[in-house]
Amino acid sequence: MLTVCHLYPDLLNLYGDRGNVLAFMRRCSWRGLPVQVREVNLGGAVEFAEYDFLFIGGGSDREQALMAEDLKNRVDALRMAVDNGLVVLAICGGYQLLGRYYRTSQGREIPGLGLLDFYTEAGDKRLIGNVVLEAELAGKKTKLVGFENHGGKTFINGHKPLGSVLYGHGNNGQDGREGARYKNVFCSYLHGPLLPRNPILTDYLITLALERKGYPSKLNALDDELENIANQAMVDRLLG
């Protein structure tokens, strides 16, 4: 049984982020893998050690602040779980939160959880639009698609990115990289939502979660015709 933690679904339901949890769940159950989701809301009890996959989305500024406040109290447990290989997907605001700080345009530094060594600073214009990345997952090159919409520019220092930008802005519109990776943590600015539109990534996360539990991780193939057509349509449209 895989157990999914959806952090603050009550708070962070922007940009169809719940589609990420849905894709993870569906692709497990279509294969007959038992899976359950637990939604954790503000102040609710959470034992990160009990989970196999953790999803954190983004919200408006106010919601983002509430989430940061709440997570601060749990950061040690979260860090331990991450070091133990917990599979994490953090999108947009959730991504920024895992870094060291967010520097506002007034120069004020809002501390993040510092789980990963990167930082974000306010940009002068929002980076918005469709994106195609080239990512390497389990040694295989694959194209990921999504939609970015972020005001902050993130610089990931020594971390690996999720992928390199073939179309779009990416982390900061400058270095051609998008997202960040550390152990089994995957961060990205891409909405879409990311997982349903990129089944290869979803399956990779499922594989990692299974491996960590010591289960055989070879996944049965699914009929992904629709997923592949949708993914390819966007790749063709953007890259011609």
Partner: peptide, 9 residues
């Protein structure tokens, strides 16, 4: 709206 991710909501 160029971002259609709202369909997932």
């Amino acid at each position: 709206g160029r971002d259609i991710s709202w369909l997932w909501d």
